[in-house]
Nucleic acid binder design. Structure first.
Lengths: 310, 310
DNA sequence: ATGAGGGCATAAGCTGGGTTTATGAGCGAG
DNA sequence: CTCGCTCATAAACCCAGCTTATGCCCTCAT
């Protein structure tokens, strides 16, 4: 009953992002201001009144502790800091747009003109981007998404519950035609503090095989590829049930791991994980679009397919 | 709940992201639920009560039209759809974390232990990631950021107002020592519908030089590099005053453009822009860390520097 | 000069989403 | 069989942010 639950001390560091980052509506408003050069015009565009926009921007500036726009009776322009903040805001908004595209596809399970079945990795990391691009070209296309492993994708296609599929893996499921649309690679990663992170000589397969790694559980696609590449030798340090858990564990320095390049792209870019060179281990796997044998994709399926070919 | 608010019937497309995407607090809560396997535990972690968490998750599910977690008396696990949504949510949260890291550096102009001066491109696209990585390794380091062009960076370093600088460009400003930390490339891009997008033969310098392009104004760093590479020949179709405006214009199909690889990475990944191959035009430029001649970076500056070397 | 128009700031009042507190119900373990 | 964990529901409450209604400032055109 006493409210001593909250240690009243410093809330430095972890104040929960949401308290320090303006909400999406505010960020969108800021982008509109940047584009239109006027608070009032931006307000109109996002469907609120001018005083509301004024207040929103002001409270953003208070929250961030930085002046973002130069107001003048002739309009508003971004300050230097505002330009930077706006660009960072754009990235947040784009991630939100990808979220929305994915969520929308997930919701419209039925009655969509294009039903896509995809493996988890592709659904997670590639599909939202494709959906955004598709929306830009063919705004009317309603897409629905079903996710599963290769076998599930094949089943959905063959039973007519999906029009187009995407799988990663070594072989094409029976009864399907396929085209390679890209390539994924498993890479060895370690936290920056790990000895391997500074390594310049490539790891040998034996070395990789005898070192305990943070891995997905047996049976997962990634684990299968790794085991096959090493000849069933992969030795687990910990086994976790999701790619995310594996990543988090690797980032925290628990040990090295082997993960899809797609899954760790961001961590590599921000240097929270480091790629470790390896030699003599075939860790590539093809990404393929698939469809029922003979039934060449047409209409919206063809549109989407043409977007995915790099 | 039938509301005939918007005349025009169709509320397809533009419903303003913020109405369709849960706010950051909700996304963070979802991530916590995924990690901890319990609504109550997640609630505790983000500092709200269990019923609030329950209600928040429920309203997310209503908003998205998809069940995200399987509740049981023994805890909560993500559904299949929940796994996907959570991964997309993670990307939004990471973008927000980068935003926060950048904004924080921008705010703490003075009295920071490490004062960084960076050119716009680096400040926009690379620094937030570095700051996140630095924070992961050295949580106590307070960083401040000043952005400007190469000359401004040099000035700040030489006057002692900054400890470490980052510039992109062909030469190192006088009075500074430097080390190359990466490489940027200008690339020719076009919207997917543009004829160049399907081109397989590389463009020749002449062809590029005689085609009107969407460009930054004369005097911008990007424009300078391009003009130098072409021998002053670049022909503008439109001249715009920000990288963002150029991108938006190119995406909308107004014409081809030449932009930093860093600036269009996301657009390329989602296929809103397509890279056009070019030959015989030297469009690379080095990214360098710089500091006052003789004053080797030490302490936090050295930490940051070591993070940036790929 | 001088008035019209666009742009931003301030003030006051209201609405509703999200929160807390309080309670109940299901399931498993000791 | 009871304790301890989980989640759901209900009711009261609080505050953030919106709208409406102004006013001031600047610029441009007459």
């Amino acid at each position: 009953m006493s409210e001593a639950e909250r240690p009243g001390g410093r809330r430095e560091g972890t104040g929960s992002l949401a308290h320090r980052v303006p909400d999406l509506a505010a960020l969108e408003l800021l982008l509109a201001v940047a584009r239109l050069g006027s608070l009032g015009a931006a307000a109109r565009e996002v469907g609120i009144t001018q005083p509301a926009a004024s207040s929103r921007v002001r409270s953003m500036e208070r929250q961030l502790g930085v002046a973002l726009v130069d107001r003048s009776p002739r309009g508003s322009r971004l300050t230097d800091a505002g330009v930077l903040v706006t660009d960072w805001a754009r990235r947040v908004v784009e991630a939100a747009a990808a979220f929305d595209a994915g969520a929308r596809a997930l919701r419209d399970r039925r009655d969509s003109r294009l039903r896509v079945a995809a493996s988890m990795t592709i659904a997670e990391y590639l599909l939202p981007g494709w959906l955004l691009a598709l929306h830009a070209e063919r705004p009317d296309t309603a897409v629905s998404l079903l996710a599963g492993n290769s076998a599930k994708v094949a089943e959905l296609l063959l039973s007519g519950e999906a029009d187009l599929g995407f799988v990663e893996g070594l072989s094409v499921p029976a009864g399907l035609d396929a085209v390679v649309i890209g390539r994924d690679r498993l890479i060895v990663v370690a936290a920056p503090g790990h000895p391997w992170a500074r390594r310049r000589r490539p790891l040998s397969p034996e070395e990789l095989g005898r070192t305990p790694l943070i891995l997905r559980e047996r049976g997962s696609g990634t684990r299968q590829v790794l085991d096959a590449a090493l000849g069933g030798l992969a030795r687990p340090l910990i086994e976790l049930s999701s790619t995310t858990a594996v990543k988090a564990s690797a980032v925290s320095g628990a040990g090295p791991s082997v993960l899809s390049e797609l899954a760790v792209r961001e961590e590599l870019a921000s240097r929270r994980l480091v790629a470790v060179p390896v030699e003599g281990v075939p860790l590539r796997r093809d990404l393929r679009a698939v469809w029922p044998k003979g039934h060449r994709p047409t209409g919206p399926a063809r549109d989407l397919l043409s977007l995915t070919r790099a």
